[in-house]
């Protein structure tokens, strides 16, 4: 999967799950603020990404990620590992 496809897919599923406009998801935006994630809902994002890209990721790693561009890089590395 090329990275542009991954980014488009990621933005689409995140916007749908967390009920935000897809335009609100920009590379430098803060993930938790944009998607209104609290400590309870972070695991929903982890589960959604795992399901969408058929990968396993560590929740500890994800909780350290701040922006969408960092998230794209992190998931891209896992998908193309």
């Amino acid at each position: 999967m090329i990275k542009e496809e991954l980014i488009a897919k990621m933005n689409e599923v995140l916007a749908e799950e967390f009920e935000v406009e897809v335009e609100a998801i920009t590379p430098d935006a803060d993930i938790k603020k944009t998607l209104e994630l609290d400590s309870l809902s972070l695991v929903d994002m982890v589960a959604l990404i795992e399901d969408t890209f058929d990968i396993k990721i560590d929740g500890q790693d994800v909780s350290k990620i701040k922006t969408f561009s960092e998230l794209y890089d992190f998931v891209n590395e896992k998908v193309n590992a």
């Binding site: 309870l40 695991v43 929740g59």
Partner: peptide
């Protein structure tokens, strides 16, 4: 088990 993050297991 599905996933876990921030001390919360789904």
């Amino acid at each position: 088990y599905i996933s876990e993050a921030a001390g919360v297991v789904l």
